[in-house]
Deep mutational scan, measured.
Amino acid sequence: DWREIAKLAEEALKKQQPVTVNGQTFNDPNEIKKLLETAQKAI
């Protein structure tokens, strides 16, 4: 669910920690931002 992904990505950016989505881990803040943008577009 994109809403859940957006929430996870936002928290990861705030806490500056990696986030795992669908078994894929994102460590890079730039990648997390991209993930968040993608999720927000999909909602």
Rank of each mutant, 00 (worst) to 15 (best):
Glu10Ile: 12
Lys33Ala: 14
Ala39Arg: 00
Leu13Phe: 04
Glu11Phe: 04
Pro29His: 10
Asn22Arg: 08
Glu31Trp: 09
Lys15Asn: 15
Glu4Arg: 07
Leu8Met: 15
Glu10Gln: 13
Lys15Pro: 00
Lys34Leu: 13
Gln40Asn: 14
Arg3Glu: 14
Ala9Gly: 03
Gly23Ala: 03
Glu10Lys: 08
Thr20Arg: 08
Glu11Cys: 07
Glu10His: 04
Ile32Phe: 01
Pro18Asn: 05
Lys15Met: 13
Ala42Ile: 15
Val19Leu: 15
Phe26Gly: 00
Asn22Phe: 14
Ala6Glu: 09
Asn22Thr: 03
Asn30Phe: 12
Trp2His: 03
Pro18Phe: 08
Gln40Pro: 02
Val21Gln: 01
Lys14Met: 14
Lys14Val: 13
Lys7Arg: 13
Asn22Val: 03
Ala6Thr: 06
Glu11Leu: 06
Gln40Ala: 06
Arg3Asn: 14
Asn27Trp: 15
Ala6Gln: 08
Ala12Ser: 04
Lys14Phe: 11
Ala12Pro: 00
Lys33Gln: 14
Ala39Lys: 00
Ala12Ile: 01
Lys34Asn: 12
Lys33Cys: 03
Gln24Met: 14
Gln40Tyr: 15
Lys34Asp: 10
Asn30Arg: 14
Glu10Leu: 12
Gln17Glu: 11
Thr20Trp: 05
Lys15Val: 08
Leu35Cys: 03
Glu10Tyr: 12
Pro18Glu: 05
Lys33Glu: 12
Ile32Ala: 01
Glu11Asn: 08
Asp1Met: 14
Val19Pro: 01
Ala9His: 02
Leu36Lys: 03
Val21Tyr: 10
Leu36Val: 04
Gln16Tyr: 10
Thr20Cys: 10
Asp28Gln: 08
Leu13His: 03
Thr38Asp: 12
Gln16Met: 12
Leu35Gln: 02
Pro29Asp: 05
Ala9Pro: 00
Lys34Phe: 10
Ala12His: 01
Glu31Ile: 10
Pro29Val: 13
Lys33Ile: 13
Asp28Val: 04
Lys7Ala: 06
Trp2Asp: 03
Pro29Thr: 10
Val21Lys: 01
Thr25Ser: 08
Glu31Tyr: 08
Ile32Val: 06
Asp1Thr: 14
Thr20Ile: 13
Thr25Glu: 05
Lys15Glu: 09
Lys34Ala: 10
Ala39Gln: 02
Gln16Arg: 14
Arg3Ile: 14
Ala42Met: 15
Thr25Tyr: 13
Glu37Leu: 12
Glu10Asp: 08
Glu31Ala: 08
Ala42Trp: 15
Gly23Phe: 04
Thr25Phe: 11
Ile32Asp: 00
Gln17Tyr: 09
Lys33Pro: 00
Asp1Trp: 14
Lys34Arg: 08
Thr38Gln: 13
Ala42His: 15
Leu36Thr: 01
Gln17Asn: 06
Ala39Met: 03
Ile43Ser: 06
Asp1Lys: 11
Glu4Asp: 10
Phe26Thr: 05
Pro29Ile: 14
Asn27Ala: 04
Thr20Lys: 09
Lys14Leu: 13
Gln17Lys: 10
Thr38Tyr: 02
Leu35Ser: 00
Glu11Tyr: 06
Ala6Leu: 14
